[in-house]
């Protein structure tokens, strides 16, 4: 039954949500902040404007959700790539711990950074 290893479905949900959210939001953010603003294709918003935007709880929540889910998406993908692709099934627990542990650490760092914006 599903309750025997209920963690796998939950990890998969995070993986799916992370993939979907990253595919929708990351290209937009990269295009704006990586190309359009630095190259002057679009008028860049000034620092005060962006700072006010990031201080809003809604923006922080969206950025946190995006970062956390994207990290868990990457962790899930990396776990299978390393375990099956490199045939490291005997190190399964270590691979799981490193991948998801990395995602947890990254999420904690993101939460700390977003929470301490003043």
């Amino acid at each position: 039954m599903t309750t025997r290893r209920p963690v796998e479905p939950v990890l998969w949900l995070a993986f799916s949500a992370g993939g979907m959210l990253s595919a929708l939001l990351v290209p937009v953010l990269l295009l704006l902040f990586g190309l359009a603003f630095p190259l002057g294709l679009l008028p860049a918003p000034d620092h005060a404007h962006l700072h006010a935007l990031v201080r809003s709880p809604v923006t922080r929540l969206v950025l946190l959700a995006l970062t956390v889910l994207a990290l868990f998406h990457a962790a899930h993908r990396l776990r299978y790539t390393v375990r099956d692709g490199l045939q490291l099934k005997r190190l399964e627990r270590l691979v799981d711990a490193l991948c998801y542990g990395g995602a947890v650490a990254g999420s904690a760092l993101a939460a700390y950074l977003l929470a301490t914006i003043s």
């Binding site: 599903t2 309750t3 209920p6 479905p9 998969w12 949900l13």
Partner: peptide, 12 residues
């Protein structure tokens, strides 16, 4: 997987 994940969430 969507169906199974929903069932898992429900049971949790």
């Amino acid at each position: 997987k969507v169906t199974a994940a929903k069932e898992t969430l429900r049971s949790l």
